[in-house]
Design a protein around this nucleic acid. Structure first.
Length: 391
DNA sequence: TCTCTCACG
DNA sequence: ACGTACGTGAGAGAC
C-alpha cells in the first residue's frame, strides 16, 4: 500500500481551496466586526480573551488544564444560539481545519516521480493492533460533514482504465462482541440480519421493532458504542445529554437484555487482572499493569482497556487476515488490481475496469470469511471514480 | 516540545 | 469523593 500510493486530483483541490478561502474571508470579517477588533483566530488563547473578557460572554468558568479559557467545540456550541459570534467561530474552525489539514496539505505530499501520495502505514504504533497512518494520515479524511466529504472526491483511480473499489465491514466490533460474549440475544439479532441499533432499542425500551423512533435508535446506538468502550454511566450521560441516573437505568436495562455481554465484560476484566494482559482472538496482547492500581481513575482506564482491547484488536486481526489473503490471491491470478489503503474497517483498492466484478467478489468473500465465527460477518462494497462515490 | 483543537474508525 | 467513554495523527500557536 505504501509503495502503490494513491492518485490525487490536484486541480480539484486547488479549486476547492479557493472556494474555502473566499468563505473563510467572509467569516473572518463577520467575527472581527462583532468583536470590534481583529486578532488571530487560530490562537485559542487570543480567541478566549476576546470572547470571554473583551466581549464579556459568560464563560461559566470553563478552563483548560493550563488555565486558559476553553474554546472547544462543545463549549462554543452551547453559546452558539445566544451569541452569533460563537457560531461564526465554529464555522471558521470547520473551514480552516479542512483547508489547512487536507485541501492545502495533500498536493504538497505528492511524490515527484510517481505523481501519487505514499502514506506510511505504521504496524507497531497502536496498543490494540490497529495500523496507524501518517505523512499524510489517510485514516482521518473527512466524511461527516457535507463540506468535508468533498475532500474524498480528490482521491481517484490511477488512470481512466481503473476504478476505486471500497469494501467495509458492517458493525464489525459489535459482531465481535456478540461472538466473544456468546450472548444469545445479540447473536440472534445478527443472525436475523437486523439493524443492531434498532434491535437494541426495541429490546431496551420494550417496543416493537417497527415502533423504534430515530431518537430511541440514536440512544441505543450510543449505548452500543459505549459497551465497546467499556461503558460508564458518567460517560453515557455526557454523550446523551441526560442525567446520570437515567444513564444508569439505561445500562441496567441493556444488561438485562444482553446478560451475556455483562458477564463477558466482567470476565474480560477478571481474566486480564489474573494474566496481566488482555488478548485478541489471534492472541496479541495488551499488558495492563494498572488493573491493580488503588487509584479509581487509573484503574477505571485499565478496566475499560481490558474490555475494548480484545474487541478493537480482534477486528484489526480480522482485517489483516483478509488483506493478506486478498494480496496473495491478486498476486497468484496476476491481477492488476492493488490494495491502496486501509481505514480500520474499510479497504480501498485500485482496480482495472475489466476486473471489477471478480475482484469485488474476491474482496467481499475474503473479508467475510477471514475467521470462523458464530456470527455472520458482512462486508459491503462500492465502486466509483473517486473515493466518495465508491464508499 | 507542549497544548489545544479537531479530523477519522 | 474520586471524575472518564476506546484507538489514532496533524496544524497552529505558545514557549
Amino acid at each position: 500500500m505504501e509503495y502503490e500510493g494513491v492518485a490525487v486530483d490536484v486541480e480539484f483541490l486547488k479549486r476547492y481551496s479557493t472556494v474555502l478561502n473566499d468563505e473563510l474571508q467572509q467569516v473572518r470579517e463577520q467575527i472581527f466586526e462583532q468583536a470590534g477588533v481583529s486578532f488571530n483566530m487560530d490562537s485559542p488563547k487570543q480567541l478566549g480573551e476576546i470572547l470571554f473578557q473583551k466581549m464579556q460572554i459568560p464563560s461559566e468558568g470553563k478552563k483548560t488544564k493550563t488555565g486558559q479559557y476553553a474554546t472547544d467545540e462543545e463549549t462554543l456550541q452551547e453559546l452558539a444560539t445566544s451569541y452569533p459570534v460563537a457560531a461564526a467561530v465554529l464555522r471558521y474552525r470547520t473551514l480552516q481545519k479542512l483547508k489547512s489539514t487536507y485541501v492545502d496539505a495533500l498536493p504538497a505530499l505528492i511524490h515527484p516521480r510517481t505523481g501519487r501520495v505514499h502514506s506510511s502505514f505504521n504496524q507497531a504504533v497502536t496498543s490494540t493492533g490497529r495500523l496507524s497512518s501518517s505523512n499524510p494520515n489517510l485514516q482521518n479524511i473527512p466524511i461527516r460533514t457535507e463540506e468535508g466529504r468533498e475532500v474524498r472526491k480528490a482521491f481517484v483511480p490511477r488512470n481512466s482504465d481503473f476504478v476505486l473499489l471500497s469494501a467495509d465491514y458492517s458493525q464489525i466490533e459489535l459482531r465481535l462482541m456478540a461472538a466473544l460474549s456468546q450472548d444469545a440475544a445479540m447473536l440472534e439479532a445478527f443472525h436475523q440480519h437486523l439493524d443492531i441499533h434498532t434491535a437494541t432499542a426495541a429490546r431496551v425500551f420494550g417496543v416493537a421493532l417497527d415502533a423504534v423512533s430515530s431518537d430511541l435508535r440514536r440512544k441505543a446506538k450510543m449505548v452500543n458504542f459505549g459497551i465497546i468502550y467499556g461503558i460508564s454511566a458518567f460517560g453515557l450521560a455526557q454523550r446523551l445529554g441526560i442525567p446520570r441516573g437515567e444513564a444508569k437505568t439505561l445500562i441496567e436495562e441493556y444488561f438485562k437484555q444482553y446478560p451475556g455481554v455483562q458477564s463477558y465484560m466482567q470476565h474480560s476484566i477478571e481474566q486480564a487482572r489474573q494474566r496481566g494482559y488482555a488478548e485478541t482472538i489471534l492472541g496479541s496482547r495488551r499488558y495492563l499493569k494498572d488493573l491493580h492500581s488503588r487509584n479509581f481513575t487509573v484503574r477505571g482506564f485499565a478496566e475499560r482497556n481490558a474490555i475494548n482491547a480484545p474487541i478493537q484488536g480482534s477486528a484489526a486481526d480480522m482485517i489483516k487476515i483478509a488483506m493478506i489473503r486478498i494480496h496473495e490471491t491478486l498476486r497468484q491470478s496476476q491481477s492488476q488490481a492493488r490494495l491502496i489503503f486501509q481505514v480500520h474497517d474499510e479497504l480501498l483498492l485500485d482496480v482495472p475496469r475489466h476486473e471489477i466484478e471478480s475482484v469485488r467478489i474476491l474482496v467481499k468473500e475474503a473479508m467475510e470469511q477471514a475467521m470462523p465465527l458464530p456470527v455472520p460477518i458482512v462486508a459491503e462494497t462500492g465502486i466509483g471514480n473517486n473515493w466518495l462515490e465508491a464508499h
